[in-house]
Design a protein around this nucleic acid. Structure first.
Lengths: 190, 190
DNA sequence: TCATTTGCCTAAAAGGTTTAGGAAGCTGCA
DNA sequence: TGCAGCTTCCTAAACCTTTTAGGCAAATGA
């Protein structure tokens, strides 16, 4: 009985590719087994269950996003950093829609705390070093940026901005301009 | 054989309640049949398939959201309208998490064009009448607002902002202040 | 080389989706 | 009132996915 050489690592990687091809919620143990030409039950030596598979794909996607963001931010600051970071998000979502969906997959708080999501939050905060914001306002701004990037990208990949003028790229650029302007002129607390 | 009085309408309504109770993607034909004490196959006289059920729940949620937004916007303008609209979104998501998820369910473009999503977009644009923006900038701003509301609410319901100070309500308020400020001082095209 | 570990298998239970065909209940018309 | 025809719900059956249990064969290494 020849061995297929399954490992958790390889399964998760293949699962991520599958997600990009057919959508994150079409990623099933069955589909993965088919891809490796192996019986479904064989996967259960490497994965606790199919929820475990999805969680691991989510963690992989977060790592990849954090790595790209870190690289994009190196040597940049201010608006330059803001744009670079934002584009990492958007480009990743367009190139890897399944993985991007995975990255948004809810994790229990313990798993989330040990994930690369933490690194992403730190990088987001690093962008704000180029702007002059008080400590609590930094947190609000981090949340705003996270919301805009996630929201824009997810509406865009859902097709929300296609079929209407002006094109999405134009809005994206202008929204980044607007965010930069907002961060430079953050309103004082009333 | 007593009849249970199933109709597509009642099934979709019950499906929406089920979504709020157990999560949108736990909404199955089986669970719905159990709730009506009816055999699963009986549902197929009223629903094409289980994807059809989910689509109909999504359309219901969009209608409800649009209705609430329309009511909240009546008689308001400027920052007042912005805040009222934003709170409709957030409150709806908190009160009806399953329906809110449903409202974000991808629809094919034809279905989307006939949905209450169109009304929501119009209402968003109506908010901007209180601000002085050029025509193309209005579209960019509509997209920004949609992104922020959707992004914030979805990160919040995913638990993104719990367990860290300051609390989410505080950020929400300050973000609305910031958006109002941004719309009043929208940066000119370079 | 042989004992142990590991990897993949078969088998089976449990539950979801969907179609086909049939019988009981309801409606409307003679 | 009686019955024709439609609607509603049923049983049956095929098929797919998840998960556990137990077993044999391949790889590892002393």
């Amino acid at each position: 009985m020849a061995r297929a050489g399954l490992t958790t690592e390889r399964l998760v990687r293949a699962g991520a590719e599958l997600a990009d091809e057919v959508g994150f919620d079409q990623v099933t143990a069955s589909a993965l087994a088919r891809r490796f030409d192996v019986k479904v039950a064989s996967l259960y030596s490497h994965l606790r269950n199919s929820q475990d598979l999805k969680t691991r794909i989510a963690l992989l996607a977060l790592e990849e996003l954090a790595d790209r963001a870190a690289e994009a931010l190196a040597g940049r600051s201010g608006k330059d950093a803001l744009g670079a970071f934002a584009n990492v998000y958007r480009d990743y979502a367009r190139a890897h829609p399944g993985r991007y969906t995975a990255a948004r997959h809810p994790l229990d708080s313990e798993t989330a705390a040990g994930s690369a999501g933490v690194r992403i939050a730190q990088l987001t905060r690093a962008i704000l070093r180029g702007y002059d914001l008080s400590e609590p306002d930094q947190t609000h701004a981090v949340r705003l940026l996270g919301s805009v990037f996630h929201g824009y990208v997810s509406l865009e990949t859902a097709g929300g901005f296609s079929h209407s003028a002006p094109d999405s790229q134009e809005s994206w650029t202008r929204i980044l301009d607007a965010l930069d302007s907002l961060l430079r002129n953050w309103p004082a607390h009333p």
